[in-house]
Design a protein around this nucleic acid. Structure first.
Length: 108
DNA sequence: TCGCCCCAACGTCAAGAGGA
DNA sequence: TCCTCTTGACGTTGGGGCGA
């Protein structure tokens, strides 16, 4: 997998959401087409067209699943970063208040 | 128990990006 | 220019919660 989101979670740069994965092997059950030169009759052509469509749908089905998986991962990463930044922000506000107390002149 | 709503996951289509 | 991949959009489906 080319997406390396975990190492940047909640710290530095956002992971690249859209990174192309190297083309994986065909899903199970997919059979490569016969060579086009071996097709002649309209029926054979129709079968070939159907087979190509089914192959395309199968690939896109898998691609959509993977795309959603990456998106969920990305969103989780963003959420955890938000959580970290909120804690950080809270600490800084507290620190600021402390410094204000220290530096402000006493008015008794 | 039933009908309704909400949500997550899915399959498909279409458009755009990028490589050959 | 063609082909493949990626992803947003949309409709469908199944499961869980909730009130009548």
């Amino acid at each position: 997998m080319a997406v390396t989101g975990d190492d940047t979670a909640a710290t530095g740069d956002m992971p690249t959401y859209q990174i192309r994965a190297p083309t994986a092997a065909l899903p199970q059950g997919v059979v490569m087409a016969a060579s086009p030169g071996s097709l002649h009759s309209p029926q054979q052509l129709a079968e070939e067209a159907t087979r190509k469509r089914e192959l395309r749908l199968m690939k896109n089905r898998e691609a959509a699943k993977e795309c959603r998986r990456r998106k969920k991962e990305y969103v989780k990463c963003l959420e955890s970063r938000v959580a970290v930044l909120e804690v950080q922000n809270k600490k800084l506000i507290e620190e600021l208040e402390t410094l204000k107390d220290i530096c402000s002149p006493k008015t008794d």
